[in-house]
Amino acid sequence: MKAAAFAYARATSVVNALELLAAHGDKAKVLSGGQSLMPAMNLRLISPDILVDIGGLTELRGIAVRGDLLVVGALTRHVDLLRSPEIALHAPLLRDAVAHIAHPAIRNRGTIGGSLAHADPASELPACVVALDATIVVRGPTGERRIAATEFFRGIYETALSPDELLVAIEVPVAGQGSTFFFQEYARRHGDYAIVGLAARAVVATGRFTDLRLGFFAIGDRPLLAAAAGRLINASVTSALLADAATALADELDPQEDQQATAAMRRHLATVLLRRCVAALLVRPELEAGVAR
């Protein structure tokens, strides 16, 4: 398991990185934390001609609050998200999610930009940025463009990024009054890719959802913003209504089957997650007990 020979270039600036990508097109791969790229290369699943290492670009690091936006640089590592006071204050969902990503050694190297650009449908952060209604900032030869997270993910390992573009930052709306979050995933072992997961953001006022975004992951080819959430907004949530929403959710899912779970099991677990999420966000444990624990 040794990677095939490849060329290596360490970018000196974002402009330099874009020049390298323009020169090599889809023969190049961007190296960020390398936690998905390097294993794939060692298994010879991919053999890029050249790696463009953006690890030295300090302009892509860091977390800052600009007005009502939280701006997270693409090179921000998972461990930075885990420890950042800004993240804890304005987007605690990211902090909660990162605790489920693999193990410390991987969190010390893996980056948010790398995770989003890789677009593994079972990974946590894509679902989080969808639930948070974030914007993905990319830069290319013709300048910068902003893509809504809901538009960014196109399929398994597929995004709206062109081969000559670089993901540079993520803009997350800061958490407002009444904002509350839920993150949970079911994985065979802690740190494994989830069988099903849910990243949720809600705004709760007087016991009702005034907003609810449910980002499911590992249930399709990309993170899914569940339409079923709409049934629970501005409504008095009862067990019956929650059951309706669960049925609607099961109908809108088209999950894949793999070694860990059949499609039926994924649907089932997604509805369990929905119930547990709503019960937790509304602080109403009785909603969870629809089915015996």
Partner: peptide, 13 residues
């Protein structure tokens, strides 16, 4: 004893 095996035995799926 995977979750799939247990859920199947419980008739949940």
């Amino acid at each position: 004893l995977t979750p799939q095996v247990i859920l199947t035995a419980l008739g949940r799926i």
